[in-house]
Amino acid sequence: MIVEHVNGKDKGNVMLYALSTCQWCAKTKVLLGELGVSFDYVFVDLLESQEQDETMDAIERVNPKGSFPTLVINGTRCIVGFREQEIREAFGG
């Protein structure tokens, strides 16, 4: 799976599931960069079909709608959509 990593402050395991064409996803990615958080991201629309299905299963476990962006912190906390305040608060920004 093509998971990209962005270096920054360690705030735990931060995973952003995004679509390459989605602008709320783009804003979320920019915000994480601005907050200087270390995170991984994956563009689910660019994955091959089997990987894509498996990734969707993983997303749906934390966000049953399977919508984007889905931000998962330490495998448990999940923020769905570009919720600027909530994301800032989650990283103490």
Binding site: L19, S20, T21, Q23, W24
Partner: peptide, 17 residues
């Protein structure tokens, strides 16, 4: 939307898979 039109053959919503 244009990217999706090329990729899938229809103008799928850019914010949905």
């Amino acid at each position: 939307i244009l990217t999706n039109e090329r990729r899938y053959g229809y103008p799928a919503c850019p914010c949905r898979l």
